[in-house]
């Protein structure tokens, strides 16, 4: 991480291109983030993480220097902190951690579709964990005991089996992770298109 943060002096093109991707991601964070915050749609964090995955993966095709995605994440997170509405500290941390995940995975495995899919998967795993950690931090670890007991009470009253409810609960993160992988793959396709267009 500290090695990745040692970013060399950027060339003009790297500086401009990092700024462009930060502006695109920042714009999405502010506009879509504000809309989702106002509309109270569930899984807002997951939706923003899908977008982050696509931007991070396709940005790496242009921003090839080491630590580029971390710098991109830091600039976007700062945008979100100062321009976003609502409670911006948790998205601020999430954006930076997501960019660190993408930087590590793509640097380790190279820019290929499997690495993009793995990036999306890991970002979504983080996104799910982020929500769980934040709930435990804000409400205390007892919140999970409370959720569990509430679910048991409701399922018993509705006459549903515990196994069925457990499967339904586990299905949500599985779907999210699948969508994360798809988003990584889509980001890879956009990145390839960008590469082809610039080569032409």
């Amino acid at each position: 991480m500290l090695k990745l943060l040692k970013i060399e002096k950027l060339s003009e093109s790297n500086l401009i291109n990092t700024a462009v991707f930060a502006a695109i991601w920042g714009l999405a964070e502010i506009s879509l983030g504000t809309f989702l915050h106002a509309s109270k749609i569930p899984f807002r964090g997951a939706i923003m993480s899908l977008l982050a995955t696509a931007v991070l993966v396709c940005a790496k095709v242009v921003l090839k220097y080491k630590g580029s995605l971390i710098l991109l994440g830091i600039v976007t997170a700062t945008f979100r902190l100062f321009l976003g509405v609502g409670f911006n500290i948790t998205p601020f941390a999430a954006i930076i951690i997501e960019s660190v995940i993408a930087e590590i995975v793509i640097n380790k495995f190279g820019f290929r579709r499997t690495a993009a899919v793995l990036t999306g998967t890991l970002i979504m795993v983080y996104s799910i964990t982020h929500g769980l950690i934040m709930q435990a931090l804000f409400l205390g670890i007892d919140i999970y005991k409370m959720y569990y007991e509430l679910i048991l009470k409701v399922t018993n009253k509705a006459g549903l089996s515990e196994e069925l409810v457990l499967i339904l609960i586990l299905l949500i993160p599985v779907i999210q992770i699948g969508l994360g992988a798809a988003s990584g793959s889509f980001g890879f396709s956009v990145g390839n298109q960008i590469n082809n267009m610039i080569e032409d």
């Binding site: 462009v20 396709c58 090839k64 220097y65 820019f111 298109q193 610039i198 080569e199």
Partner: peptide
């Protein structure tokens, strides 16, 4: 989406060598 992004990118950035950043 690529069409949306490309006009803003700095063209002098050498992108011809694919997958070379690693």
């Amino acid at each position: 989406f690529a069409n949306l992004i490309v006009p803003f990118l700095h063209k002098s950035n050498s992108l011809s060598s694919k997958n070379n950043f690693n």
